[in-house]
C-alpha cells in the first residue's frame, strides 16, 4: 500500500506536471528547431512569438466569453486558438516579408539573423505589453479538474490523492495530436518532404526545383501554429504573463540543443529531458520517501535537491553537459 501511495504522490507531483511541462517545451522547441533547420538561425524572438500568439488567443477568448460562447467543460481558449494562430501567422509572415527577407537575399550570416531576431523580440515584446499589459492574465474557464485529489482518494481508498487538471489533460492530448500531425506532414506530404529536403541540402533542393520562398513561408506558418499552441497551453496551465514567456527561451533553447538543433524528434526528446530534470530536481521527495522508507528512517528534511527558483540552473547544467560531451545533441542535429 505504501509503495502505491508513494507512486501516486510521485505521479501527482512529478510525473503529470513534468509530462505536461515537457509537452509545452517540446512544442516550443519544435518551433525553434524548425526555424534553425530551414532558415538556419537561432530565433531569439521565439518566446515573444509564443506570447504574441497566446495574447491573440486570449483576446478572442475574452470576446467569446463576452458573447456568452463557451466550450462546456473545456476552456473557451480552445475555440479561440485557431484565431490566435491566424494572428501569429499574420505577424510572422509580416516580419518575414518586412525584415528577414532582406537578409535572406543578402545571404547574411546566421549571427546577423540572430541579432535581427533580437530587434524583432523587442518589437513583439513591446506590442504584447502595449496591447495586453505586463501583468498576469487569467483566461482559463470550464472545469478545472478532470480528477480531483479528494475524489481519487474516495475512489481508491488510498491516503494519497491524485489530481489531474483539465489544463494538463488538454496539454498532453493537444501535444500528441500536434506532434503526430507535424510528423505526418513532414514525412508523408510532398510539401513536408520538400521542407526536409531544403533543410538537408539547400543547393540540391534548389536544383530539384523546390521553391525556397514557399518553403520559408510554410515554415513560418507552422512555427506560428506551434508557438501559439505552446503559448496557450502554457498559459492555461500556469497563467499568462509576457515576461515568463521571454524566460521560457532558455529551457526551450536548451531542449532544442540537447535534442540536436534542426532535428524535430530531438526537440521533443529534449523537451521531456529538460522538463523531467527540472521537476524532479526541484521536487521535495520527503513525502515519497516517507512512504518507502522503513519506519523511523523517514527523512526529516524536505529532500529537495534544489529550490524551485533554480529550475533554470537545471536546464542550463544539462545544456552544458551536452555541449561538453555531445555538441550535436542527443539526436544528431546540424553541427554547422
Amino acid at each position: 500500500m505504501d509503495i502505491l501511495n508513494a507512486f501516486i504522490a510521485l505521479a501527482n507531483f512529478v510525473l503529470i506536471p513534468a509530462i505536461s511541462y515537457g509537452s509545452q517545451l517540446a512544442l516550443g522547441a519544435l518551433g525553434v528547431t524548425l526555424i534553425y533547420g530551414i532558415l538556419r538561425f537561432s530565433n531569439f524572438a521565439h518566446g515573444d512569438t509564443m506570447a504574441f500568439g497566446a495574447m491573440c488567443t486570449i483576446l478572442v477568448t475574452w470576446l467569446f466569453q463576452s458573447w456568452g460562447i463557451s466550450f462546456g467543460p473545456l476552456p473557451t481558449a480552445l475555440l479561440a486558438l485557431p484565431f490566435g494562430i491566424l494572428g501569429a501567422i499574420a505577424m510572422l509572415l509580416a516580419t518575414d516579408r518586412v525584415i528577414y527577407k532582406f537578409y535572406r537575399e543578402q545571404k547574411a550570416k546566421p549571427v546577423i539573423f540572430l541579432i535581427v531576431s533580437l530587434g524583432v523580440m523587442f518589437v513583439m515584446n513591446g506590442v504584447v505589453r502595449f496591447i495586453i499589459g505586463p501583468d498576469d492574465q487569467r483566461f482559463s474557464d470550464g472545469a478545472r479538474f478532470i480528477m480531483k485529489a479528494r475524489d481519487f482518494k474516495q475512489m481508491t481508498g488510498l491516503s494519497e490523492g491524485l489530481a489531474f487538471k483539465t489544463s494538463q489533460g488538454i496539454t498532453i492530448v493537444t501535444a500528441v495530436v500536434v506532434v503526430a500531425l507535424l510528423f505526418w506532414f513532414l514525412n508523408k506530404t510532398r510539401t513536408g518532404k520538400s521542407m526536409r529536403a531544403y533543410s538537408d541540402n539547400e543547393d540540391l533542393a534548389l536544383l530539384s526545383g523546390i521553391n525556397p520562398e514557399r518553403v520559408v513561408t510554410i515554415t513560418w506558418i507552422i512555427v506560428a501554429a506551434l508557438a501559439t499552441i505552446a503559448g496557450v497551453l502554457y498559459g492555461l496551465d500556469k497563467g499568462f504573463k509576457p515576461f515568463t514567456y521571454f524566460q521560457l527561451l532558455l529551457p526551450i533553447f536548451a531542449s532544442a540543443i540537447v535534442g540536436g538543433l534542426g532535428n524535430p524528434l530531438g526537440a521533443i526528446a529534449g523537451g521531456f529531458v529538460i522538463a523531467f530534470s527540472e521537476v524532479t530536481i526541484t521536487y521535495a521527495f520527503k513525502k515519497v520517501l516517507g512512504y518507502l522508507m522503513p519506519e523511523g528512517l523517514e527523512p526529516s528534511s524536505l529532500v529537495q535537491l534544489l529550490s524551485t527558483d533554480y529550475k533554470f540552473a537545471v536546464s542550463f547544467t544539462i545544456l552544458i553537459i551536452v555541449l561538453l560531451f555531445r555538441p550535436t545533441g542527443l539526436f544528431k542535429g546540424k553541427s554547422l
Binding site: 538561425f41 537561432s42 531569439f44 546566421p110 549571427v111 540572430l114 524566460q247 527561451l249 532558455l250 533553447f253 536548451a254 540543443i257 527558483d309 533554480y310 533554470f312 540552473a313 536546464s315 542550463f316 545544456l319 552544458i320 555541449l323 561538453l324 555538441p327 553541427s335 554547422l336
Partner: peptide, 24 residues
C-alpha cells in the same frame, strides 16, 4: 571554457543561461 569553440549561437544560449542563474 565550455561554450567557446562551438557554434556561435551556443555561446549566446550559454551566456543567457548563466545570467539567469546568477540572478537566481
Amino acid at each position: 571554457k565550455t561554450a567557446l569553440g562551438l557554434r556561435s549561437d551556443y555561446l549566446a544560449v550559454a551566456t543567457l543561461g548563466i545570467a539567469e542563474i546568477i540572478i537566481a
